[in-house]
């Protein structure tokens, strides 16, 4: 019995390992077509689902190359075609029973047009929305945390603390809806530009991670023992000095951890952003112009895409997964080291 139970628990624990490896491998395999097609240049390519004509005969195509950028991309793709082995094309044919029209053209070696996919726009969108959210949420969350753990008397801090925790539990889709119909119009009035934009998406994302960040930051601050604070007060420190010199240093590891956790959440957040970002595959020209993020690109296009388009979405998923995994693990290992 003992043995059975032990092995059962061991295998359940290993499940975590298997799932994580499984996610990585699955995403990798599913994005293999796109990886082969676009390589690492995918990350810096601003096109998405864009038909590009290849100039065999200068007058034959309507979308002739006008700027050097497209030219470069073409060169890159032609080059990779030369080097890519037959196998890839074979796999294309076998796996995609319903072959995308674009792929068809592409594979048939007529090669007048092909569809180009790149991750630059969603990557930039993801980073910028997260950044805006952090810039907005960080000071307010710190303020709330300090207020709850040090300023407010217990009988006020307790109910407000619970309220904040409950707000952190509200599904993100609610934040998205509220943002679209109530918050974005006001911001658009103030700043100008579209209601759906980088700015409104980032701010709503910020509002969404605010309670979460505040709650866990407060928890970290509360780990500071009362005696430690008292002994600083007993030396004549002001409240601010106690916060700055005792509480922050003491709970530094936890606070930074909280911020990074919130960052991780913001990076992968779909629903709060989906309503607001505009879902346009275009690099934002200003803070109030619409664009798209990786999770939103996935949310809106999965299920409809096929062939190379779907594979490119998996490539996006892989990038998102690797980024968030890296951020969180670096933080964990770094802070674990520091904490011990």
């Amino acid at each position: 019995m003992e043995k059975i139970f032990r092995n059962l628990s061991l295998s359940s624990a290993s499940l975590v390992f298997i799932i994580l490896i499984g996610i990585f491998i699955t995403l990798f395999l599913a994005s293999k077509d796109a990886i082969n097609e676009f390589g690492i240049g995918f990350i810096t390519n601003p096109n998405w689902n864009k038909e590009i004509s290849i100039e065999i005969d200068a007058k034959s195509s309507n979308e002739t190359i006008k700027n050097s950028k497209v030219n470069e991309i073409e060169d890159f793709n032609l080059e990779s075609d030369l080097f890519s082995d037959e196998d890839d094309i074979m796999i294309d044919d076998e796996d995609d029973i319903i072959i995308d029209e674009d792929d068809m053209l592409f594979n048939e070696d007529i090669k007048t047009t092909f569809t180009d996919y790149g991750a630059l726009v969603p990557i930039v969108g993801t980073i910028l929305t997260t950044l805006i959210a952090l810039i907005f949420a960080l000071p307010i969350a710190m303020g709330i945390a300090v207020f709850l753990s040090e300023i407010a008397p217990k009988n006020i801090a307790y109910p407000i603390g619970i309220a904040i925790e409950l707000l952190a539990a509200i599904p993100s889709i609610i934040f998205g809806m509220w943002g679209l119909y109530y918050f974005a119009p006001i911001i658009a009035d103030l700043v100008g530009g579209y209601q759906v934009s980088l700015l409104t998406a980032g701010l709503v994302l910020g509002v969404m991670i605010l309670p979460f960040m505040a709650a866990i930051t407060r928890d970290s601050m509360n780990t500071t023992p009362d005696v430690l604070k008292e002994s600083a007060y007993a030396m004549g420190a002001t409240k601010f000095e106690v916060i700055k010199d005792i509480i922050f240093p003491y709970s530094k590891v936890g606070i930074i951890g909280s911020i990074i956790l919130a960052l991780g959440r913001a990076l992968g957040e779909t629903m709060a952003v989906a309503f607001l970002i505009g879902s346009i595959f275009a690099l934002p020209t200003a803070i109030n112009s619409p664009t798209i993020s990786i999770p939103v690109a996935m949310a809106n296009n999965f299920g409809e895409a096929s062939g190379l388009g779907e594979s490119s979405l998996f490539y996006l998923a892989l990038i998102l997964f690797v980024i968030s995994f890296t951020i969180i693990s670096i933080a964990k290992l770094y802070f674990l080291k520091k904490a011990s």
């Binding site: 430690l228 008292e230 002994s231 600083a232 003491y250």
Partner: peptide
């Protein structure tokens, strides 16, 4: 003031 448990600051 000195407390029961040592209170070194971080």
């Amino acid at each position: 003031m000195i407390f029961q448990k040592p209170t070194p600051f971080p």
